[in-house]
Amino acid sequence: MNHRPSTVLIVGATGSIGRHAVGEALQRGYTVRALVRDHARAVRVLPDGVDLVIGDLTRPETLSTAVDGVDAIVFTHGSTTSERDVRDNDYAGVANILKTLAGRRTRIALMTAIGTTRPGVAYAQWKLRSERLIRASGNPYTIVRPGWFDYNQPDQRKIVMLQGDKRQSGSPADGVIARDQIARVLIDSLHIDAADHKTFELIADPGPEQEDLTNVFASLTPDSVESLDAAEDIVDLPTESEPEMFRDDLATITAGSLKAGD
């Protein structure tokens, strides 16, 4: 990572994780821009000092102002467990932002979910595809797969990062984490070099929260630049068998990355 970003775009800023991410980023001294669809709602729920930009993740033509001049993007948006909703919002939002960047280098933090690699789970596969686009984009990035929100006990604040996505019960038994801690990890990843090219599941264990997460990030295996998948994942989704929508997006984003690297 060449430098600490200064201006961060929060995608999904008025959501339950996004609001925490906005607060965390402001506290860390970032200039914060929020991509919002409803200006009146954003004014109600977000603090002063946030640059509100109106746009819609599903409409690429509305996104250029949002990404203009930012050097970091934090994706906290998420919809339902409907395959169509995740495809048309969660996945398409990532694809549309990356295509709008057109290869311009930007530090990225993406929130998906624990269990993203569960075989045969259609909505999870679209989250996985959004991760693949981030890896193919050529940007420095961190991909965070939180456990179940807010099932943690009050004394369960020790941040733990796992790899390989091995917990796949589809219940809080897979791991739990508080919303404010998810936001903290996303924002911390922007300025900790050891977080770059890391993908992990995020949970909390009993104990106090760490003041510095550098060593936790450093303990993780980095993703290979030769692969679309995370370092320790087991995934059976051959690119040639993937939906045309994904293959087209991948080709566009990869071409943008190669052009930027010329």
Results as ranks from 00 to 15, higher is better:
residue 77 H to R: 00
residue 107 R to Q: 11
residue 89 N to R: 07
residue 123 Y to M: 10
residue 131 E to D: 15
residue 116 T to F: 05
residue 126 W to G: 11
residue 119 P to Q: 12
residue 121 V to P: 10
residue 109 A to F: 13
residue 123 Y to Q: 12
residue 103 G to Q: 03
residue 106 T to G: 04
residue 94 V to E: 11
residue 114 I to Q: 14
residue 104 R to E: 08
residue 97 I to C: 01
residue 95 A to Y: 06
residue 90 D to H: 01
residue 121 V to H: 09
residue 84 R to E: 15
residue 103 G to C: 05
residue 82 S to W: 08
residue 92 A to Y: 04
residue 98 L to E: 12
residue 79 S to E: 10
residue 126 W to S: 12
residue 88 D to Y: 00
residue 76 T to N: 08
residue 121 V to F: 04
residue 130 S to P: 00
residue 92 A to P: 00
residue 120 G to C: 10
residue 131 E to H: 08
residue 101 L to Q: 05
residue 106 T to C: 13
residue 117 T to L: 07
residue 99 K to Q: 13
residue 105 R to W: 02
residue 97 I to M: 06
residue 98 L to Y: 05
residue 85 D to W: 00
residue 123 Y to A: 07
residue 126 W to Q: 13
residue 97 I to A: 00
residue 77 H to D: 00
residue 103 G to T: 01
residue 98 L to A: 12
residue 99 K to D: 14
residue 82 S to T: 02
residue 129 R to Y: 15
residue 94 V to D: 08
residue 125 Q to M: 14
residue 116 T to K: 11
residue 78 G to F: 11
residue 79 S to K: 13
residue 88 D to V: 00
residue 108 I to K: 02
residue 122 A to P: 00
residue 116 T to E: 08
residue 76 T to I: 09
residue 132 R to H: 10
residue 122 A to E: 08
residue 119 P to R: 14
residue 105 R to C: 03
residue 85 D to Y: 00
residue 110 L to N: 09
residue 109 A to R: 13
residue 114 I to Y: 01
residue 114 I to A: 15
residue 98 L to I: 07
residue 123 Y to I: 06
residue 104 R to W: 00
residue 102 A to H: 13
residue 92 A to R: 15
residue 79 S to A: 14
residue 99 K to A: 05
residue 91 Y to C: 06
residue 120 G to P: 01
residue 119 P to S: 12
residue 103 G to I: 01
